[in-house]
């Protein structure tokens, strides 16, 4: 989770390293020293080799393989015959022209947008609240991390039971308060399921937003607020003119990372609704899973997976630009 904010740091380092290597390069070492240096370099690379091999096999290879598969008719029979005929863009045409695609694209957008807004707003409000000094602040704040540390499938199971129409805790609570007469079908109604899934995902994401934003707030020097209060900037004004501008770099990183992580979400949706009812919570990620692992159309699943990669890459570019801006500021 440090990935976000680590980047400015690493970029700054990369440039300083570049200038250093440039400096030693001008010394022109003697041939013998050079060969020893070469051996030294080789040795240093050995430390990096296992990681490079792993990353290539478990990230590089899948991406390339997925691109190849998306142009093949890759089905269960491929596993027996070993044949996967080239079909050009057929998989993409099938996947993109399917009526399910627009549904899952809209669901992905709503799911991501709803989750991010909810997590961020509540996370920021809590982060600001925890800026106050009060007893047990640290312990209570760290206990708030629990929803984020639980296995996602555990959270899904618990929420399935809480949101149950007939005997779930939420409906019983609302019933006891006299707000509702009959149980609300949170997860079984086509109009409510997506809202319920977003709600659960917000619950899971609040701790991450709270922690990173809290860290960002702690970095803002107190003197700024003291100077601001002399100029009459207190309360909302202080937030608008001091807190928000100072927090901006952290905010952009939290938001972009949040989007990238939310686009990939599979566990929560599969656990809560399995994409249903009637595909009302089907996203691009879950649909790609269905195509490959339920309908065994691996080629089409790969094509849809690549669509998801492209969407993520757009945000990756935004992420890199945001963190570069963070370095500049």
């Amino acid at each position: 989770m440090s990935l976000a904010t680590d980047l400015p740091h690493s970029e700054g380092r990369a440039t300083s390293e570049a200038s250093k290597t440039h400096g030693t390069g001008t010394e022109k070492p003697a041939p013998r020293r050079r060969s020893r240096q070469r051996r030294e370099r080789l040795f240093q690379w050995l430390f990096l080799v296992p990681a490079v091999v792993y990353m290539t096999l478990f990230f590089g290879y899948p991406v390339v393989k997925n691109v190849v598969m998306s142009f093949q008719e890759y089905t269960t029979s491929t596993f027996f015959t070993g044949e996967a005929p080239w079909v050009g863009f057929t998989n993409y045409v099938t996947v993109l022209s399917s009526s399910l695609f627009s549904t899952s694209l809209i669901n992905t957008a709503l799911f991501t947008l709803g989750s991010i807004i909810g997590q961020f707003v509540i996370g920021l409000a809590l982060a600001i609240f925890f800026q106050r000094k009060f007893p047990l602040n640290g312990i209570l704040r760290s206990l708030l991390l629990l929803p984020w540390l639980l296995p996602l499938i555990v959270s899904s199971a618990v929420w399935r039971w809480i949101l149950d129409k007939d005997s779930g805790a939420l409906n019983r609570f609302l019933g006891d308060l006299g707000i509702i007469d009959t149980g609300i079908p949170w997860l079984t109604s086509t109009s409510l399921a997506l809202i319920a899934v977003v709600g659960v995902n917000i619950w899971i994401g609040i701790p991450f937003n709270l922690t990173i934003l809290y860290g960002g707030l702690q970095e803002i020097p107190d003197e700024l607020y003291e100077a601001g209060s002399l100029d009459g900037a207190t309360g909302w004004k202080a937030f608008r003119h001091i807190t928000w501008p100072m927090l901006r770099p952290v905010v952009s990183v939290v938001l972009v990372l949040g989007v990238v992580y939310t686009l990939k979400v599979l566990d929560i949706i599969l656990g809560l609704t399995n994409g249903g009812p009637a595909n009302s919570t089907q996203t691009i990620a879950t649909q790609s899973y269905n195509l490959s692992f339920h309908e065994f159309k691996f080629g089409e699943g790969a094509a849809l997976g690549n669509v998801l990669v492209i969407i993520s890459l757009v945000f990756a570019v935004l992420y890199l630009r945001a963190s570069r801006r963070a370095v500049d500021e």
Partner: peptide, 19 residues
């Protein structure tokens, strides 16, 4: 590469790894 790897959806990795 490490940072970019975080953008790759798990389902894409799983799809290729399965085969």
């Amino acid at each position: 590469a490490i940072l970019i790897s975080q953008m790759i959806p798990g389902i894409v990795v799983a799809n290729a790894l399965y085969t």
